Computed example of a mutant assay.
Amino acid sequence: MFRHVGKGRTLAHNLQLASLLSLVAGIVNVTGIFALQTLTTNVTGHFAYFADEVAQNHFAQASVFLLYILAFLSGAFSSHFFIEITSRHDFKLGAALPISIEVFILISIAFLGPEAVKGNAHLIACSLLYAMGLQNALVTSLSNAVVRTTHLTGLFTDLGIELSKLLFNRNAEQQKALTSSIKLRLTIIAFFFSGCIVGGLVYFFQGMLSLLLAAAILIFGWVYAYLKFKILMMKRKLQH
Rank of each mutant, 00 (worst) to 15 (best):
L66Y: 06
I27P: 00
Y68W: 08
F59D: 04
L39M: 13
F72P: 08
I69W: 14
L73T: 11
V30D: 00
Y49P: 00
F47L: 10
L39G: 00
N57S: 10
H46Y: 13
S22I: 08
V64I: 15
A25D: 04
S63A: 13
Y68K: 07
Q56T: 12
V43W: 11
A48S: 14
S22T: 12
F59V: 06
T40V: 13
L21D: 02
V28Y: 11
I27V: 15
A55H: 09
T40S: 11
A25K: 07
F72S: 04
V43I: 15
A71N: 08
A55M: 02
S63T: 12
G45V: 10
G45H: 11
F65V: 08
T41A: 07
L73S: 03
N29P: 00
I33T: 14
H58R: 14
L67W: 13
A55G: 01
N42G: 02
A62K: 09
A48L: 15
N57G: 01
I69E: 12
S22N: 14
A35N: 01
N29C: 01
L73Q: 05
H46A: 01
L66N: 03
L70V: 15
V24I: 15
Q56F: 14
N42A: 05
L39R: 12
A60K: 13
A48N: 09
S74P: 00
V43Q: 07
A35V: 04
